[in-house]
């Protein structure tokens, strides 16, 4: 149990540092880092509170606290991935609309230029 908690602490700290460095280098925008921070902090707090993990395992009716911790971590990352899919879908929609608008405007522009050249 202790080994797993220490490992989770290590992973959480690494994740928090990675996100911080990425924000500083502008590889990730602040608004998209919030969910990663939330997930990493939750894991950090849980990994430093074995009592809380045991209580959570009891509440979830999971007999093995380490298994509960792994399950919670898995769920957190699933939530993060789901949120990213939503963001990605919105961005794709916006990107398609933008590309279509650019194409339409370029079409209007070239039609206007052709008319001007004729007259």
């Amino acid at each position: 149990m202790q080994a797993l908690l220490d490992f989770t602490t290590g992973i959480s700290v690494v994740l928090i540092l990675m996100v911080l460095v990425s924000i500083r280098r502008q590889h990730i925008r602040v608004e998209y880092s919030v969910t990663w921070f939330g997930a990493a902090l939750t894991l950090l707090l849980l990994s430093r509170s074995p009592g809380a993990v045991s209580k959570l395992a009891g509440a979830l009716n999971i007999s093995d606290p380490p298994l509960a911790l792994v399950s919670i971590a898995g769920c957190l990352f699933l939530l993060v991935l789901f949120r990213l899919s939503v963001i990605l879908s919105n961005l794709k929609d916006a990107n398609i609309a933008l590309a279509q608008r650019v194409a339409i405007l370029e079409y209007h522009l070239s039609a206007h230029e052709e008319e001007t050249a004729r007259s």
Partner: peptide, 20 residues
């Protein structure tokens, strides 16, 4: 007449651009 999309959108995106 040709309308050129700035990047590849796939069939639906291209047809919708034409409809728009």
């Amino acid at each position: 007449k040709v309308m050129s999309l700035p990047h590849h959108l796939g069939l639906g995106g291209a047809v919708q651009a034409g409809y728009k």
